[in-house]
């Protein structure tokens, strides 16, 4: 019998949540931006410490003024991935508040922080950004090249089974 865990992806619209899941589950990437309406559920089985674990991944639409997403989508999650776009400061400026907000509505659970679209930024600028961020345990990923995509889900899977 395979154990299942619910994973939610959070973050502003257009930061690459859907793209990261697409890359992770289907090894695909598309330049086209099709904003997620509501939520889409995907699934991938991973191995953690020699045991299979089924990740039920909830790709939740990034909220904006026009689209409010039911809080219920986040309920019952066992782990979360916070995604922001390294090129758009507005997507990470309030990341600490966003995390606090999540912790106020959900019971404690492991999460990972992800700065996505790394391929669009020079090493130099990335280093500046890293210093400016409040924490240092970020994954700097690219859904386009696949860099650190497996790793972020792997890390979360491990945290969820501890």
């Amino acid at each position: 019998m395979i154990l299942s865990k619910k994973v939610i992806l959070l973050g502003h619209f257009g930061v690459g949540k859907t793209s990261l899941i697409q890359k992770f589950v289907h090894s695909k990437f598309s330049e086209k931006y099709i904003t997620t309406i509501g939520v889409k559920v995907d699934k991938k089985v991973v191995r953690v410490n020699g045991r299979e674990l089924s990740l039920i991944i909830w790709d939740i639409a990034g909220e904006n003024a026009r689209q409010k997403v039911p809080q219920a989508y986040k309920m019952g999650a066992h782990g979360a991935i916070f995604v922001f776009d390294v090129m758009r400061p507005s997507t990470y400026e309030n990341i600490e508040d966003d995390i606090k907000h999540m912790q106020s509505i959900l019971p404690p659970m492991p999460f990972v922080l992800v700065g996505n679209k790394k391929d669009l930024m020079s090493e130099q600028k990335l280093n500046v950004l890293k210093k400016a961020l409040p924490k240092n345990d970020f994954f700097f990923s690219s859904a386009k090249t696949g860099e650190l995509v497996e790793e972020m889900f792997g890390k979360l899977a491990k945290l969820m089974t501890q």
Binding site: K6, V41, D42, K43, I56, W58
Partner: peptide
């Protein structure tokens, strides 16, 4: 409830992934 995780299912002809349907 809430998490949408599948406890179990019965299906005459499994067509789609049951875990994903449960979530949706």
């Amino acid at each position: 409830q809430n998490s949408g995780l599948l406890y179990g299912s019965y299906s005459r002809n499994k067509t789609m992934d049951q875990d994903m349907i449960a979530g949706m």
